[in-house]
Amino acid sequence: MAEVLVVTSGKGGVGKTTSTAALGAALAQTGQSVVVIDFDVGLRNLDLVMGAERRVVYDLINVVQGDANLNQALIKDKRVESLYLLPASQTRDKDALTAEGVERVINQLKERFDWIICDSPAGIERGAYFAMRHADLAVIVTNPEVSSVRDSDRIIGLLDSKTEKAERGEHIEKLLLLTRYDPIRAERGDMLKVDDVLEILSIPLLGIIPESPEVLKASNLGSPVTLANPISAPSRAYLDAARRLRGETIEMTVPSEKKRFFGNLFGRRAA
């Protein structure tokens, strides 16, 4: 059964696209078939973060309008089997998306993939609405910072009223992905702690992604961080989050680079 997941936040720049790429790749690395869709029409970036920017021929709008079929538009990842990208259009207007067209595309993808991950644009306009419309599950990407938490709260309200599931009176599952977290600054009292954000937003936690230079390095290279450097702290946090999405129970930690070094040292000796 296909799961439709929306990665959303309200606020821009908190890590939606990075997280879409990392979670998509992480799920595909566990053998699941995954398609990541860019809903940011006019400002597409998922192709760039995934390193597929030169392979885009057709896009979501072409498929929605019937100018291309899905097979023509889907871009197969060169690193992970079973990972695909459906890019957004860079030149078209966001009004080119239609409710019926998006629904048709999502239904077609449901027949082929285990996971359909919709990368929402920032804001609460049409694109964000279409990205969340058919979701079974929402990942709310939030930075431990006041404006991001406020916007996440607003998006949670919209998920509870504007999605298909909510309109049918069903519960839409919402999970918090706390990104750019710095445990040292949080401990010092200079950054909201995990528990503060959880208490304010009152949704379950999917994962804590530590602030790390590895994320920028990976996007420089055009690779999801989980593929660029799978043993880095953010990658391990994303890989754990992906396993939680698959229903596994994994202890919640904030991975750090230092621990990893010793962990590997001991791990190797033990092996």
Binding site: V146, R150, D153, R188, D190, M191, L192, D196, E199, I200
Partner: peptide, 14 residues
């Protein structure tokens, strides 16, 4: 520390 102020302001506002 500034984080408690952030938490209080958010709770009131939200």
């Amino acid at each position: 520390s500034s984080a408690p102020a952030a938490r209080e302001r958010l709770q009131l506002l939200l």
